[in-house]
Amino acid sequence: MTIESILGAIVIGAVIGVIGCLLLPGRQAIGLILTIVVGIVAALIGTAIAQVLGVATTDGIDWIELVMQVALAVVGVGLVAGLKRSRV
């Protein structure tokens, strides 16, 4: 992995985390940094799942992979917000 690919994964993960937070109804009691971390993890897991399922890599945007990543981000943000809410 190069520095550019790592930075790209962080930026894409951050965007996916924010999108996941916006798609989840209601207000989430988690901060921006935690949302970005959830997005990065969701992006990595979504990419791994897409590769296992044999989703073809294209030159442009891989829409199926992107949908998987955003769906995982929504679930992740919901879980983290629920866990944080139950602790308080």
Rank of each mutant, 00 (worst) to 15 (best):
I10A: 12
G78Y: 05
L32P: 09
T57V: 13
I12P: 13
V74D: 02
L53T: 00
L34Y: 10
P25E: 09
I33L: 14
C21Q: 14
I64E: 02
G60L: 08
V80K: 01
W63T: 06
I16A: 01
V70Y: 03
T57L: 12
L44I: 06
R85T: 10
L66W: 04
I61S: 12
I36S: 08
L7G: 13
G78A: 07
A14V: 14
I61Y: 11
V15T: 12
T58W: 10
M68C: 06
I61Q: 11
Q28N: 10
L23Q: 07
I49R: 00
G39Q: 02
I30G: 01
E65M: 10
V18W: 06
G8T: 11
G31A: 06
G76P: 02
I61H: 09
T47V: 02
T57I: 13
G13R: 04
L44D: 05
L79Y: 05
L22S: 06
G26C: 06
G8F: 09
V55C: 01
E65A: 10
L53P: 03
I12Q: 14
T47R: 00
V88D: 14
L32E: 12
A50V: 04
P25R: 09
L66Y: 04
V52N: 00
T47L: 01
G20C: 01
A73H: 00
L34S: 10
K84C: 12
K84E: 11
I30K: 00
V80Q: 03
T47A: 04
I33E: 15
T2R: 11
V70S: 03
T57A: 10
L32N: 13
G13H: 05
E4H: 13
G78V: 04
T2K: 10
E65R: 08
V74H: 04
T2Y: 10
A43D: 01
I40F: 06
V37G: 04
M1Q: 10
L7T: 14
K84M: 12
G39W: 01
K84V: 15
L72D: 00
M1C: 07
R85E: 10
A56K: 10
I19G: 01
I6V: 15
V41T: 03
Q28D: 07
Q28G: 05
E4C: 15
G20P: 00
A14S: 14
A43I: 04
A71I: 08
I45G: 02
L83S: 08
W63E: 08
I33D: 15
I10C: 14
V67D: 09
V77D: 03
C21F: 11
D62F: 04
I36T: 08
V37Y: 05
T2G: 11
A71G: 11
P25C: 08
Q69A: 07
D59N: 15
A14G: 14
D62Y: 03
V55F: 00
S86N: 12
V15Q: 07
I10V: 15
L79A: 07
V15R: 07
Q28P: 05
Q51I: 11
I16V: 11
I45S: 03
G76W: 05
I30H: 01
W63I: 09
G39M: 02
L53V: 01
L72M: 05
A48M: 08
D59Q: 15
G8M: 10
V88R: 15
G82N: 05
A50I: 02
L66V: 08
T58E: 11
W63Q: 08
